[in-house]
Design a protein around this nucleic acid. Structure first.
Lengths: 151, 151
DNA sequence: ATAAAAAAAGAGTCTTTTATCTTTATTTAA
DNA sequence: TTAAATAAAGATAAAAGACTCTTTTTTTAT
């Protein structure tokens, strides 16, 4: 559905949002190790998010990435749009160039419900909601056993 | 969701199933032109489906691809499994190595319903069902204007 | 037998996505 | 005012997916 890159972006933002109370910045190396995402690749993704104003960063010693007030209120769809674009919600299931209710493929109607359910979920969920889930111990950002069991 | 290749496979099979009444075989060039799929690429996909017994083929003059009795009764999930594998239904939305109800990512539960809805649809739908939709003029395999309007 | 038609197979290319490595720019603190 | 820390940028590479081209094999019909 969404690209791996986009998943990395969301996890990166949520990681920063989780740590926002500590009022400190996080270096790319720390974030990447914690989330087990290739460092430089994640770096580029976060830089992209900074350019788009979704997160912030400061260079130099004691610099790093951090969230701003707006960040935690950002709907996921905004991140998806920034990284993958909204086109992903219009792709034909059977690989035709176009697919719409006026010229549907034989799977169009079958999956249209799912498609819009997913879209709406991304519209409704905010970064804050994912933070809550993780704070509650209902879900995890990384697979690290320590993370999963340190409750 | 499913790969472009898998979509091509389904469209190829349905094309052949649609023509089954005419009791004739179809050359790869004809199929590819009709469906607007790269010829040699589709050729390999169909050859794969022949090896797996989902469709049939005969070489030589007047040869080509054609469906057998079993083909139209094939559930779509069987094609998806043959081409993409069932692993696609287990991939983590956020790109983690694993994702399950015991160690879920923050989107796991949100989308689990959709995931299994899609799986079940592929399980329940058979090639015959897609043929019916097209025969009824409810949907189309190719975008060709003539196809879309020749009613 | 031979030529032609067609699938099958092999090998290679192009594109996109994902990932790595290196250098540069900025900032801070000593 | 220099060294160190850090993000930013640039360039390259590796992997996967999608696609192309060429040759081989099989079959049919003449």
């Amino acid at each position: 559905m969404i690209s791996k890159t986009c998943g990395y972006a969301i996890r990166g933002i949520v990681f920063l949002a989780l740590e926002q109370n500590k009022h400190r910045k996080h270096g790319i190396l720390e974030i990447a190790e914690d989330l087990q995402i290739p460092q430089h690749f994640l770096g580029k993704i976060l830089q992209d998010l900074v350019r788009r104003g979704i997160i912030n960063s400061i260079k130099g010693p004691h610099g790093g990435f951090f969230v701003n007030a707006k960040t935690i209120d950002t709907p996921l769809i905004e991140v998806v749009e920034a990284i993958d674009g909204l086109g992903i919600f219009k792709k034909c299931f059977l690989g035709r160039e176009e697919c719409s209710s006026t010229n549907p493929c034989p799977l169009h109607d079958e999956f249209d419900g799912c498609r819009s359910a997913i879209f709406k979920t991304f519209e409704n969920l905010k970064i804050a909601d994912l933070v809550t889930k993780i704070d509650n111990g209902d879900s995890y950002l990384s697979l690290n056993k320590e993370f999963a069991t340190e409750i």
